[in-house]
Design a protein around this nucleic acid. Structure first.
Lengths: 197, 197
DNA sequence: CGTACAGTTGATAGTACTCAAGTTATGTGG
DNA sequence: CCACATAACTTGAGTACTATCAACTGTACG
């Protein structure tokens, strides 16, 4: 299934009939309240599972950040296939367990890290993820400052200030607003503060 | 396996050999940084799975809040049993999916709710959970203000002030520090703000 | 009875939010 | 190709919410 930038793959509350795997591009999963507040739960790149429901309905939205491509699996068929191939089933299980651990790490960040620490840790996480980068190691951010803010539980102004501060400290270089080059990973780690143990 | 109040069931970093089910009492799962900051990820009561690892090691601590009892399952054996009984396997799978959705809801609270909204939503969640209550509907909190603070990403003083405020508003009654009676659930819901849609 | 821990309440300070203006990018139609 | 409109981003000033520091109260336990 091909997706255009901005297109919505999953609506919160919709019947949960499919599970997807990202094959190209970047997506975001989010929850929004009716008064406009939004929390982004995860950014997803190639290789990740999307849309794991515990019951009949999805509990979050999933939208494409860039043009993207996902592979759709019918939920019922997936269960049959998994019953036949225990290896696939175990892969699926560890995949969800990893998502849970990421969610826990995220909870630690949201609850206990300062704005600067969150942004620093976010950049380090991005570098370790399958987020697109140039051959020289420059990160190409598919998300806006607003998206990052909604992911980190901050405002876009606070995120922008943190980026500017990192630049003025010489820790990162910002060739353009969507490009980040980490110049001093050690100092960035220090700014990210004590991790989850 | 019986546990005394305060006892640790799982240490972060330990080899992940077992999965548990709570049969009695209350536990907490948490991550701590070496500078003393702590984030509680979940409170667990009877019926819940504990200790779902994506790899060889646990990534959080689990301690008993009260005297408790858990049922231990060897991880390897559990997989064999699950291979035989697909029903159990599916229960396990939806159990982890539910935990993931709870974690997402929690992320929304930590990132986007005010202190008062977090406390109000927390009390409503507790009421809907298998947290112990008297026959008259009074919640018996097994955790301290500090625990609640570390769960909600606040300080214990802020939590205490929110409790006092709810009391003075007549929304709850506090027969003792560990007991909460919700007197006006509607107003409590309003104070919890717009939920995750 | 006294110590220790949990909780409450008050005063002050600080980090991040809000509001606002101005500056790039991006994309579209003339 | 340029002018314009729109969206994304940056920066500044003032405010507000929550954290911090501190004193005090209540309760459980030896």
């Amino acid at each position: 299934v091909p997706l255009k930038a901005g297109e919505t793959l999953i609506w919160e509350g919709d019947g949960a009939e499919n599970t997807y795997v990202v094959t190209r591009g970047a997506l975001r999963a989010s929850k929004s309240s009716d008064d406009g507040r939004r929390q982004i739960l995860d950014f997803m790149f190639a290789g990740q599972f999307v849309g794991i429901p515990s019951d009949a309905a999805y509990h979050f939205n999933v939208e494409a950040l860039t043009d993207a491509e996902v592979c759709r699996f019918d939920r019922r068929k997936l269960e049959q296939v998994m019953a036949k191939y225990p290896g696939l089933e175990r892969g699926y299980r560890t995949g969800t367990a990893r998502q849970l651990e990421q969610a826990y790490e995220h909870a630690y960040a949201l609850g206990r890290r300062t704005a600067m620490e969150r942004v620093a840790a976010f950049l380090l996480d991005l570098r370790a993820s399958s987020c697109p980068k140039t051959s020289t190691g420059v990160l190409k951010l598919p998300m806006t400052r607003g998206d990052i803010a909604d992911f980190l539980g901050l405002t876009l102004e606070t995120v922008s200030r943190a980026f500017s501060r990192l630049k003025s400290l010489g820790v990162v270089r910002l060739p353009s607003a969507q490009e980040v080059e980490i110049r001093d990973a050690e100092r960035l780690r220090a700014l990210a503060g004590a991790g989850g143990l």
